[in-house]
C-alpha cells in the first residue's frame, strides 16, 4: 500500500511538471496581455515600461525558468491585473466555489439516490420511466441555458429566489461562508441546483443500474429467499453494494464540478474561482490562469488518490488485489 502510494505520488509529480510546461506554453501562445491591459492612448514608451514591469521582455524559456524557480518557493507569480499573489487570489475565491460544489453534490444525492432506488426497484412502473426520461433531460440540457431559465422563472417571474451573487455570509474558521445564513442559503440554492443537474441524472442512473444488477445477484436472491423483509434487503444488501460506484463517480465528479463551475458561476455572478478564471482569461492575466490550472491539476490528483483509497476501503476485493501486487 505504502509503495503503491509512493509510486502514485511520483507519477503525479511528473504529471504536474508536464502540465505546468503545457499550460505555460499554451497561455503564452494566446494573445498579448499588454495589448489588453494597457490604456489605448498609452505611447510606446509606456508600453515598453509595462512590458518590462510584467517581465514579458524575457524570452519564453527564461520566463518559464523564473516561474519554476519561484513556484518551488511557493510563489506562483503575481496577478498582472490585481498586483496580488495569484495563489492568494485563488484561495480567496476557493471557499465560494467549494461551497457551491458541495451544495450541488448534496442536492444530487438527496434527489438522485431515492429516485434511482425507486427506478431500480420498480423498473416497469410509469413513475420509473418518467424518472429515467427525466434523467436523460438532465444529461442533455446545456448548463448555461438551464441557469438562465432558472433565473428567468424563479427570480424574475416568481420572485422567490435572489437572481445572482452570494448574499450574506457568516465567518467560520476565518472564512466567510454563505450556507451559514438564511440569505446565503437562498442565494446558493439556484446555482447549486444548476450545477447539480447533471449529477442528479448521474446518481439516478448509477443507482438504478446498481440496483438492477445487484437484485440479480445470488446473495440478494438468497437473502430474499431467506425471507428477509424487502426493506432490509434493499437498504442493507443492495444499498451497500451500489454505494461504491456512486461514491467513486461523485468523488471524481467533485473535481470536475469545481473546474466546470465556470459556466454556472458566470451565469449566477457567483464570486468563485471559476469566475476568476474566466475574467482572467478575458484580460490574459497569465499568472492567475497558470496558477489556477495548476491548482486544478493538483486537486484532481489528490481527489483521484482519495477516491482510490476510499475505494480500497469500501471494496474488500480491491484491497486484496493491491496487497497481492
Amino acid at each position: 500500500m505504502a509503495l503503491y502510494l509512493l509510486r502514485r505520488i511520483m507519477q503525479s509529480g511528473f504529471v504536474l511538471v508536464a502540465m505546468s510546461l503545457l499550460v505555460f506554453i499554451g497561455v503564452y501562445a494566446v494573445g498579448d496581455p499588454i495589448e489588453i491591459l494597457i490604456s489605448p492612448d498609452a505611447d510606446q514608451e509606456e508600453k515598453e515600461r509595462a512590458i518590462r514591469a510584467l517581465g514579458l521582455d524575457l524570452p519564453l524559456w527564461q520566463q518559464y525558468l523564473v516561474f519554476v524557480s519561484r513556484a518551488l518557493q511557493g510563489d506562483l507569480g503575481r496577478s498582472f491585473v490585481f498586483n496580488e499573489p495569484a495563489i492568494q487570489l485563488i484561495l480567496q475565491r476557493m471557499p465560494a466555489t467549494l461551497e457551491l460544489a458541495f451544495g450541488s453534490m448534496i442536492i444530487a444525492i438527496i434527489i438522485g439516490l431515492p429516485l434511482g432506488l425507486y427506478a431500480g426497484l420498480r423498473p416497469d412502473t410509469w413513475g420509473s420511466k418518467t424518472i429515467m426520461a427525466g434523467s436523460i433531460l438532465g444529461f442533455s440540457l446545456p448548463t448555461f441555458w438551464v441557469g438562465l431559465m432558472l433565473i428567468m422563472i424563479f427570480a424574475v417571474q416568481l420572485g422567490w429566489l435572489p437572481s445572482t451573487g452570494r448574499g450574506d455570509t457568516a465567518v467560520l474558521f476565518g472564512i466567510p461562508w454563505s450556507f451559514l445564513t438564511i440569505d446565503g442559503l437562498s442565494h446558493i440554492l439556484m446555482p447549486a441546483f444548476n450545477l447539480a443537474l447533471f449529477k442528479i441524472s448521474l446518481v439516478i442512473r448509477l443507482t438504478r443500474a446498481g440496483v438492477r444488477e445487484t437484485m440479480l445477484m445470488d446473495y440478494v436472491k438468497f437473502a430474499r429467499a431467506k425471507g428477509l423483509s424487502p426493506t432490509r434487503v434493499t437498504f442493507v444488501h443492495v444499498f451497500k453494494n451500489i454505494l461504491i460506484p456512486v461514491v467513486t463517480v461523485l468523488g471524481l465528479e467533485l473535481g470536475g464540478t469545481i473546474a466546470f463551475s465556470v459556466v454556472t458561476e458566470t451565469v449566477f455572478a457567483w464570486p468563485g474561482m471559476g469566475k476568476l478564471i474566466i475574467d482572467s482569461i478575458n484580460v490574459l492575466d497569465r499568472p492567475v490562469i497558470v496558477a489556477y490550472l495548476l491548482m486544478i491539476v493538483v486537486m484532481f490528483i489528490v481527489i483521484n488518490l482519495i477516491v482510490d483509497i476510499v475505494y480500497t476501503l469500501l471494496d474488500p476485493r480491491v484491497r486484496l488485489e493491491s496487497k497481492g501486487t
Partner: peptide, 18 residues
C-alpha cells in the same frame, strides 16, 4: 457596489429587485 459581468444576469438582478 456589485460586479455582475453577465449581461442577462445583471438585467435579471434589477428586475428581481436585488
Amino acid at each position: 457596489y456589485r460586479m455582475i459581468t453577465n449581461d442577462s444576469a445583471r438585467t435579471a438582478a434589477l428586475l428581481a429587485g436585488d
